[in-house]
Amino acid sequence: MKPFYLLLMVLWGALAFYTGAVIGNDGLNLFPWFFGDMARWSWPGQFNLDFSMMLFLSASWTAWRNGFSVSGIALAILAFFGGAGFLLPYLTYLAWKHGGDTAAILTGVNHKDRAA
């Protein structure tokens, strides 16, 4: 599992570096770019729509995993707007917290004891 943790952190570092460079070049206002591509019905717009759906799935899973609690909803909002910048460190934290137990990582408060 440790190589997986390392991979998650390398990906997170690469994303942070790339994001910093883009912010330096284009600023923080990504919405005109993001929705503008979607409004043009182009391949970049198709990618942005697909990506938005993945963000929604990530946020939905995060809220469900945390039992739709207040903190789970707050984490879901972070998941939606943070994308991989949230999900990579969150999965790393969960893997560390649950000692690599994949069922506990994925299901959280919905995890049932399967030792029966």
Rank of each mutant, 00 (worst) to 15 (best):
F34P: 00
L8P: 15
L91D: 04
G100W: 09
M38D: 00
A16H: 09
L91F: 13
A14G: 10
G24R: 12
G82D: 10
S69M: 03
F31D: 05
L91Q: 13
N29I: 10
S58Y: 06
P44K: 05
I23E: 01
I77L: 09
D37Y: 12
D26I: 06
F86N: 00
G82Y: 11
D101A: 10
M9P: 15
H98Q: 10
N25D: 10
S71W: 04
K2E: 14
G82S: 05
A63Y: 00
K97W: 02
P44R: 04
W43L: 06
A14T: 15
G72S: 07
L94T: 09
F34N: 00
A21M: 11
G83D: 10
I23K: 01
N110F: 07
A76C: 05
V70C: 04
F31Q: 10
L91S: 09
Y5G: 02
L49V: 11
N110S: 13
G99V: 00
F4M: 08
R65H: 04
A76T: 03
D101E: 11
V109L: 14
L28I: 06
S58G: 12
I105N: 15
L28N: 09
F31T: 13
M1K: 05
F51D: 07
T92K: 03
P3N: 13
K112D: 07
F81L: 15
S71P: 01
G85M: 04
S52N: 09
A95K: 03
N48S: 11
K2W: 01
N110W: 08
G36V: 06
L75T: 02
M9T: 14
I23N: 00
M9H: 04
F86E: 01
F4G: 01
L75H: 11
G108F: 12
F80H: 09
A14D: 05
P89H: 07
A21P: 01
A16L: 12
G108Y: 10
G83R: 03
A95I: 02
A79W: 05
A63H: 09
W12L: 01
T62H: 11
R65C: 14
A115Q: 14
A116R: 11
L75R: 09
A76I: 03
D50W: 11
V22P: 00
A95Q: 05
K97G: 03
L6I: 15
L78K: 08
T102F: 11
V22H: 01
S58K: 02
A95D: 01
L55I: 01
K112W: 10
K112P: 13
A79Q: 00
A14Y: 04
M9S: 06
A95G: 12
G36N: 03
G108D: 14
F86Q: 00
G72D: 08
L30I: 08
W61F: 11
S42Y: 03
L91C: 03
G45S: 05
H98F: 14
D50L: 11
S60Q: 03
D113H: 08
F51S: 07
T62G: 05
L11K: 07
N25W: 14
G72Y: 12
W96D: 07
Y5F: 12
S71V: 10
N66P: 00
I73H: 02
A116Q: 09
S71F: 02
A95V: 02
L57H: 03
Y93W: 10
Y18T: 04
W12G: 02
G27R: 03
D50Y: 09
N25F: 14
L91I: 01
D50T: 12
N25S: 15
L7M: 13
L49Q: 08
A74P: 02
M54S: 04
D113Y: 11
N25E: 15
